[in-house]
């Protein structure tokens, strides 16, 4: 009888464990978020630290952003023109390319690319610092690793991602322009004027920018959190790096839906 009871209670424990574990992880993340925000004052006091990290997060991601942006624009131009031409409206390809980039593809794709290029690198770097006791050493030197190591990367990420997104958008639109105007023969004037008339500053550009800021906070926070809380072994760091990319992708796509629902609901 007691054996049976034990099995039943064991079953419920097994059922509840993943939930409680996730809640614990969430609580830890929330506490860490507050800790990082509070420590972020160092970014203003010592901008040199942020500039250094912006080099690794922003400048190092430029190539992948430029190349991907160009190709996304090229493909969008081709695909959209092909579809629109069936309805005799191939002329509005500029508008379709610009709208899809500025509203959705730009923020989302750049966030995904940056999280795999820079986010994973940040996780690996911090995780390795933890594994080799560099973070402990820093603490023993009376320096807060959250302020000295995490906060500059956090600030640099938040500054870099929106800029990279804007660059991605512009390069993408340029790609669409190349295909539409030079390959498919859409009139240059029509291409730009259709775009200008349809893309709204507040509705599209500002909303896209807001999205990219939200994504920036999400992916860079996931990156530093995974790194800082990685298990201090080679295995733990590689797991944390993978987790950064996977979680960033899920969070970015989920957030994108929520943000889009808020922003474009009435339009």
């Amino acid at each position: 009888m007691s054996d049976y009871l034990q099995r039943v209670s064991g079953f419920f424990q097994a059922l509840g464990r993943p939930v409680t574990e996730q809640l614990v992880a969430l609580g830890r993340a929330a506490r860490f978020f507050v800790e990082v925000i509070l420590a972020s004052g160092i970014c203003l006091r010592r901008p040199g630290l942020v500039v250094r990290e912006m080099y690794f997060i922003g400048v190092m991601s430029l190539v992948i952003i430029l190349v991907s942006g160009l190709f996304v624009g090229l493909v969008l131009g081709l695909q959209m023109y092909d579809t629109l031409e069936r309805f005799g409206s191939g002329d509005i390809v500029g508008m379709v390319v610009a709208l899809s980039l500025v509203r959705e593809l730009g923020p989302v794709l750049s966030a995904l690319l940056i999280s795999s290029r820079a986010g994973s690198a940040v996780t690996a770097e911090i995780g390795l610092m933890k594994t080799t006791e560099q973070l402990t050493a820093m603490e023993m030197m009376a320096i807060q690793p959250v302020a000295r190591v995490v906060a500059p990367r956090f600030c640099a990420g938040i500054l870099s991602v929106p800029l990279l997104t804007a660059i991605f958008n512009v390069v993408g639109i340029f790609g669409g322009y190349l295909v539409a105007v030079h390959l498919l023969g859409v009139d240059t004037g029509t291409f730009w004027s259709q775009m200008e008339s349809a893309v709204d500053f507040r509705m599209d550009v500002v909303n896209g920018f807001i999205k990219s800021v939200f994504f920036a906070v999400a992916i860079i926070f996931i990156a530093v959190f995974q790194g800082f809380h990685a298990t201090a072994t080679a295995e733990g760091v590689s797991l944390a790096t993978t987790q950064t990319v996977v979680k960033s992708a899920l969070v970015v796509l989920g957030m994108d839906f929520v943000l889009t629902a808020f922003m474009f609901r009435g339009i």
Binding site: E125, M129, T132, Q134, M140, A142
Partner: peptide
């Protein structure tokens, strides 16, 4: 801690 120095097991030098 500012008045303490510590040498870690594997050195723990800052690799960057």
């Amino acid at each position: 801690r500012r008045k303490m120095g510590m040498l870690f097991q594997m050195g723990a030098l800052f690799t960057d």
